[in-house]
Design a protein around this nucleic acid. Structure first.
Length: 204
DNA sequence: CTGATGATGTTCT
DNA sequence: GAACATCATCAGA
């Protein structure tokens, strides 16, 4: 069952935590991709200099003003794109960065998207490396800002979130976010969540 | 396994 | 003109 609007229009930090264990589904024509979300980060509207929308919205971030459930994809370092999910009700600004997935379906296609070669007796290392980072999962799924920016996960026919695996409290680890040391306010906030001992988590 | 380095171009000042 | 929510690759151990 797809998650509806009510899941996404809650507090950003709760959405970020509750996204763990859920399934990100992408249907591209006849290809279906599925993966369990194993790592997320929350970016919030107050006192968080790491958030792109900290000083108001721009052309890049405008979708964050919409209702929770919309897709925010942006370019980084000139060569990568990262996938985020808008949270909160319209007018409140918050977003969740999806940092890592555990591939469930469409693995052979992901492999081709990532390595540009056919899937044949892959190494374990290559499978882990498919989706264990925020730009990697975008490449594996074949998502892009041009095609998917602004899609609504609550209603889209090609991209949505489903229930996945059941987690208990002790399966969830909370820590500082990655690579935001430039942010004086916010660098030490515990807004990163990941599934304990999952091999696809990007960093310990 | 770890840590260091270079690639690369959009976005915002 | 600087900054940047990253990754692949390489050297060393």
């Amino acid at each position: 069952m797809r998650l509806g609007r009510d899941f996404f229009t809650r507090n950003t930090i709760l959405v970020s935590r509750d996204l763990l264990g859920k399934t990100l589904v992408y249907r591209d024509g006849k290809d279906i991709y599925k993966g369990i979300i194993v790592e997320t980060e929350a970016y919030i509207s107050t006192n968080d200099e790491a958030a792109h929308f900290n000083k108001g919205l721009t052309e890049r971030t405008r979708i964050i003003d919409e209702a929770g459930g919309h897709v925010y994809i942006y370019n980084i370092y000139g060569m990568y794109q990262l996938f985020n999910i808008v949270a909160e009700v319209p007018g409140i600004h918050g977003a969740v960065l999806v940092r890592a997935l555990e591939p469930i379906k469409g693995i052979e296609k992901m492999y081709k998207n990532r390595y540009k070669k056919t899937y044949d007796n892959p190494k374990r290392r290559e499978i882990i490396n498919l989706t264990n980072g925020p730009a990697k999962l975008v490449m594996a799924y074949g998502l892009s800002k041009e095609r998917h920016y602004g899609l609504d996960l609550a209603t889209s026919r090609e991209l949505w979130i489903e229930e996945g695996i059941q987690l208990s409290r002790e399966d969830i680890v909370r820590s500082k976010r990655i690579n935001i040391d430039y942010a004086e306010k916010g660098r030490d906030y515990l807004l990163r969540f990941y599934i304990k001992d999952n091999p696809f988590v990007s960093k310990k």
